[in-house]
């Protein structure tokens, strides 16, 4: 007799959902473009050409050039690296904090839970962007130089080039974990009295083992969905910060800081505003479609939070 594993059920449903597949393809393409940036971009992102300042789109420069004569398409391709990195790292930080806080609150209950939940309520009361900006203002730009081991720094430098991007990732992560924490806590409340958890406890398993091996693994599905949707949100926040001039700093290209140039040259250079914004839209759309596709495809038996 053949039984369907949750994985194969998921895959069968996911494949049927055309929009979800489209979202997956968008995200995959972004990865490929970002990884192959040096190969696929026609120019170097910081190559200045004073003869071609603010040129409209042409065959030589499909998305035009900016105020220093740099090729917009090439800058956008390099910008996709930042967008991806910020999305993934900040959501990983947020998910990690959310998992820990939610698990501890849900598992131990009592006053720990009350304090944690009250703290989350308060964090959610402070206007989102105000909180991000405030934390941003007080972050030491040299934070990672001060606290991380030199080897780790070297790896980070290779991957993300610019230290202030690290700050952005941390800030978005630190201000975005509350939703995950609530989700995980709800999962814990519904699972922790189940028979298999009782059995594990009766067999003398430690708290840590029960939390990680027995409960957390069973509540990964909604966390995964919220993480994928969270990346979309992080990409939006990063681009907004860079647009306002406090995110990724030029000359490092990011979609948001190209849009700043778009605003500065709004009367003469429409291409600086149109293309980077479209890139953000398509990226966010891709993650949203993928996230919702995953949610709809997950075997309902694994989907605990529907019942709460």
């Amino acid at each position: 007799m053949r039984t369907d594993s949750p994985g194969s059920v998921f895959w069968r449903r996911f494949k049927r959902n055309k929009l979800a597949v489209a979202g997956g393809i968008i995200v995959l393409l972004l990865f490929v473009v970002a990884a192959l940036a040096p190969i696929v971009s026609p120019y170097k992102p910081n190559e200045i050409d004073r003869k071609y300042i603010l040129m409209p789109p042409s065959l030589a420069h499909p998305f035009g050039t900016d105020d220093l004569g740099r090729d917009v398409l090439s800058r956008m391709i390099y910008g996709s690296k930042i967008s991806l990195a910020v999305g993934f790292v900040s959501v990983s930080i947020a998910t990690f904090i959310g998992l820990i806080v939610g698990a501890v609150a849900g598992y131990y209950g009592k006053w720990i839970e009350r304090i944690a939940m009250r703290f989350i309520d308060i964090m959610l009361t402070i206007p989102t962007f105000f909180l991000i900006l405030a934390v941003m203002a007080f972050m030491d730009p040299n934070l990672w130089v001060t606290y991380l081991a030199p080897e780790v720094q070297r790896i980070l430098e290779v991957v993300i080039i610019d230290p202030n991007i690290m700050t952005i990732m941390i800030v978005i992560g630190l201000t975005g974990w509350m939703g995950v924490a609530r989700l995980v806590r709800a999962e814990f409340l519904s699972v922790k009295e189940r028979d298999y958890v009782m059995a594990a406890r009766a067999l003398g398993a430690s708290d840590l083992r029960i939390i990680f091996r027995h409960i957390l693994v069973n509540s990964m599905a909604p966390v995964l969905v919220s993480a994928v949707l969270g990346i979309a949100g992080a990409v939006l926040v990063e681009s907004a910060l860079s647009f306002l001039g406090i995110g990724v700093q030029p000359p490092t290209p990011s979609w948001g800081n190209i849009l700043t140039l778009g605003k500065d040259n709004i009367e003469i250079a429409w291409w600086l505003s149109v293309f980077p914004g479209l890139a953000i839209l398509v990226t966010v759309l891709g993650y949203n479609l993928l996230g919702e596709g995953i949610r709809d495809s997950i075997d309902p038996r694994l989907w605990e939070s529907d019942r709460t």
């Binding site: 907004a240 647009f243 849009l259 605003k263 709004i266 980077p276 914004g277 839209l281 966010v284 949203n288």
Partner: peptide, 22 residues
Amino acid sequence: VFLGFATPPFWLALLLMMLFGV
């Protein structure tokens, strides 16, 4: 609505400024 969900508001602001203002 789904497209609107993915549109960065500040980008839309730029486009509208360009269209209605410029």
